[in-house]
Amino acid sequence: MSWWHKHAQLISCDEATFNAWCGVEKKSDINDHLLAKGRKVRALVRDPHAAAAQILLPAGVEIVQGDINDPASLEATMQNVYGVFSVQPHSDDEAHQGKGVADVAQAVGIQHFVYTSIGSAEELFRRRVNVGKWEIEQHIRKLGLPATILRPAGFMDSFTHPLYGVSGDTLAIPIKPDTAYPLIAVDDIGAFAAFAFDSPDDYLGRVIELVGDTPTPPQIATAITRATGRHISYVHISIETVRQQNAELARACDFINESGFKADIAALRKLHPGLMNFETWLEKKGKAQFEAINRSKHG
């Protein structure tokens, strides 16, 4: 789920320059896709000397020091750029930050604002799940920003994180064994954002639900087993156990278990033929991520 985002990002762009705020531990996938198309990327970071910022430099990203909570920083960074890519972490500050980014984008005349929300944002808002993202969507509409809104489902990449995915040799999640779990590779979110900037006539004004695959939890465990050579067992966690610790997460899982997320994967694949299913993601991205985490555990 996108409330698992740990770091806010802002990426702005024009024909010459794409501009980014990111406190990420690796290069942003949107950065990769924009750079691959010959764009220039500028990153607004709190600490330009931090490893998270320094890792962006070899790729050719311009680093600018600033703060996403400071409108003056945002305004300075957005000067003379074409568009903005914005996604905030799920936190108490989410709505404030997201609306603030949109306000500045409108003030400086940004021509294309790409916002990454969450799958089925309106329905989740009704269920009191990640309400900030729906509020930001509504604010973007109220401002009349020329925008594209991307609504990703759960992240395939989250399964490499012990807190959200595989811990040891177990995949213990509150998703029922027969539930089709809607997932998207983070890299594909970046691809769709880049498509939006490259083809504004096709993407401006659109809200796009992003799903690349819908495997069941046992299928996920089996696929990870094949890719990594480690036997991964799926264990279903009681939703009531989750509810005692995190009521919002439990409401989100209720929605998934009810097959609430909807997206037309076939139509998405026409737009993006390289859209990854779970096994393809494991082959191209996930296996290496699992191996890197395993190496870090064993020194």
Rank of each mutant, 00 (worst) to 15 (best):
S158Q: 07
E122S: 13
R151A: 07
G144R: 02
F155H: 05
I110F: 10
H139Y: 15
F85K: 01
M156F: 15
T170C: 14
E123S: 13
I136Q: 14
G132R: 12
V81A: 12
P152D: 09
W134D: 12
F113H: 14
R128D: 14
P162D: 14
P152Q: 09
V101L: 12
I173L: 12
A147W: 07
F159S: 04
R128M: 10
I136Y: 10
T170Y: 06
G119L: 10
R151V: 03
E122H: 14
R141F: 09
Q79P: 00
A102N: 02
T179K: 00
Y115T: 01
M156R: 11
L124N: 08
D103H: 04
D169T: 14
A180Y: 02
A102R: 01
G119F: 00
Y164A: 01
S158L: 13
D157K: 13
R141V: 07
D103T: 04
D157L: 12
V101T: 05
V101A: 08
Q79Y: 05
A121T: 09
K133I: 04
P89Q: 14
D157V: 09
D178I: 00
V166N: 08
D157Y: 12
S120W: 00
G100R: 13
H161I: 09
G132P: 11
F113P: 08
L124H: 08
Y164G: 00
V104T: 05
D92E: 15
T160A: 15
I175L: 12
T148H: 03
E123C: 00
Y164I: 01
F85A: 12
D178L: 00
E122Y: 12
S167Y: 03
F125Q: 12
D92P: 10
T160H: 06
L143A: 10
G109M: 11
V131N: 03
T116C: 15
A102F: 08
T160W: 02
N80A: 12
K99C: 14
Y164H: 03
Y115S: 02
S86K: 08
E94S: 11
H96A: 03
A153F: 03
T170Q: 15
V101I: 15
M78D: 02
L163H: 01
V129I: 09
D169M: 08
G154P: 02
F125Y: 15
S120N: 10
V129Q: 03
G119S: 13
R141T: 09
N130T: 08
A107F: 05
I140L: 05
K133A: 08
V166I: 13
E94L: 11
A153M: 04
T148K: 06
R127N: 03
G100E: 06
H161P: 00
E123P: 00
L143T: 07
I118P: 02
K176E: 14
L171H: 04
L143E: 10
G98C: 05
D178H: 05
V81H: 02
A95S: 14
D93P: 05
R128Y: 07
Q106E: 15
A180S: 01
Q106P: 05
G119N: 10
R151T: 10
A107R: 15
I140A: 11
L171E: 02
